[in-house]
């Protein structure tokens, strides 16, 4: 007894569940690398205005008559087409000179690199905010349904079932088509039709059932757990039980959902933007740039390839990070560790 207490006192500071999880995450090399890549992408996108200022280009206006200075020569951004009948113009290809049409120009003569960074900023912003929207509503609904049960649970669960019955993309596309045309007016909240909040709201809402369901299940199990019964037995009011006993125990699940939902949202955002029902021109996102590059696929493939690669890398990093987070936060992960 005294020996046991002695060794316990010897540990300098007691490590909480969060600190333990963080240590486990930092030991996971793949997850740390993925986190590094993701942070790098975010920082690069945040530097978009700096890049645009330095390259002296405006990525949101047509500059068909601009001139590029390459190896002491002045070359027009839009070159006379050399293929087929030689009709029309082809934008300049990648110069591989940073700050000087690094990835070439698009159909409007705009610097693709600058647009890629600005577009990344929008893509990340939409994916991130949509994740916040999803997790907020999913937590609210999941907690209420799981904790109060009865008629509240039935109403919420059936509502989620209805939402779930629609294929995600069908729902997102129909919502977008309607809302892009006329904007959203919810009494107090009004969202303009061109606003970024529209795709954020649409993508956020569409995924709510996918998160709310597991949260509800967890709350349902926690509701019957001994420590929640103990809290009820102590006379702790419901709101306090929800806040102190239930929410902290579902928060690990919520955290694991963050990178996974961000990856999913990013793909959905790109799809909507590619279909012209996400981010509206002249604003850019990785989805709209792919669409811009669609017609140039044979002559200037980099316009579509660059944002595509950016999406793949970001989504991959987020998924690897999500796996690492799950392993770090889930106490049962010990069983599943395949890597030695």
């Amino acid at each position: 007894m005294t020996v046991a207490s002695g060794t316990l006192s010897a540990t300098p500071k007691s490590r909480g569940p969060w600190a333990t999880a963080l240590r486990r995450l930092l030991r996971d090399r793949a997850a740390v690398f993925a986190l590094f890549i993701f942070v790098l992408i975010v920082v690069l996108c945040l530097l978009a205005p700096v890049y645009a200022a330095w390259a002296n280009t405006d990525p949101f206006t047509s500059t068909l008559d601009a001139v590029v200075h390459i190896n002491g020569q002045d070359v027009p951004v839009m070159e006379q087409s050399t293929e087929g009948l030689g009709l029309g113009y082809t934008p300049i290809g990648p110069t591989w000179q940073i700050g000087n049409y690094f990835l070439g120009a698009d159909n409007q003569g705009r610097d693709v690199m600058a647009r890629l960074l600005y577009g990344g900023l929008n893509s990340l912003l939409i994916a991130g905010m949509a994740t916040v929207v999803t997790l907020f509503f999913a937590t609210l609904l999941g907690l209420a349904a799981g904790f109060f049960g009865g008629i509240i649970d039935t109403l919420i669960s059936r509502f989620l079932d209805i939402l779930w019955a629609f294929p995600v993309y069908l729902l997102a596309i129909s919502l977008s088509i309607v809302l892009i045309a006329q904007g959203l007016n919810l009494g107090i909240i009004t969202i303009e039709s061109g606003s970024l909040w529209l795709p954020i709201f649409i993508i956020g809402v569409v995924y709510v059932p996918y998160v709310a369901r597991p949260i509800r299940g967890q709350v349902l199990a926690l509701r019957e757990s001994d420590f929640v019964l103990a809290a009820i037995g102590l006379g702790v009011p419901s709101y306090r039980i929800l806040l102190r006993d239930i929410l902290p125990n579902v928060s690990t699940t919520l955290i694991v959902f963050v990178p996974i939902m961000m990856a999913l949202n990013m793909i959905t955002e790109s799809a909507l933007s590619f279909l012209s029902i996400g981010v509206q021109p002249p604003d850019a996102s990785w989805g709209t740039i792919i669409q811009d590059g669609q017609n140039l696929l044979y002559t200037r493939p980099m316009v579509a390839l660059a944002p595509g690669i950016a999406i793949v890398i970001t989504v991959l990093a987020l998924n690897v990070l999500g796996d690492g987070l799950r392993d770090a936060l889930d106490p049962r992960s010990k069983i599943r560790i395949g890597r030695s």
Binding site: G16, F227, L229, G235, R244, D245, N249
Partner: peptide, 21 residues
């Protein structure tokens, strides 16, 4: 208000304490 006069100790000491507090 009566709960402070009637208390309970549970069987499983691992399950009856919230691991996050």
């Amino acid at each position: 208000p009566l709960r402070r006069r009637i208390q309970m100790v549970f069987q499983d000491p691992y399950a009856s304490l919230n691991p996050r507090r």
